[in-house]
Amino acid sequence: MPSFEVRLPTVVRQHAGNAVTVTGDGDTVGELFADLVRQYPGLRNYLISDDGTLHRFVNVYVNDEDIRYLGQLDTAVVAGDDVSILPAVAGG
């Protein structure tokens, strides 16, 4: 199973032992996130909504593609892919 290093947005670092980057394994984004949540349970509420889908205030990219337009959390990842977590930023 490939391993990925993911840089965390600043707001969630305190929930991951102040780590700037975290490393997890998975064949899909969902598996990778499950592995990250296993290591850092505090990440769960930030990444995953109550119904098990990607939290609506988070955008996730695999390389240059938004996973909402791919396979959501089922999006496959392979070694060398760049997985990025972005807080959704909006206002009025």
């Binding site: 955008n59 990219y61 240059d64 938004d66 990025s84 972005l86 959704a88 930023v89 909006a90 206002g91 009025g92």
Partner: peptide, 9 residues
């Protein structure tokens, strides 16, 4: 406004 997520990336 919503920050374009590709620009954010």
């Amino acid at each position: 406004y919503t920050i374009d997520s590709k620009d954010q990336l």
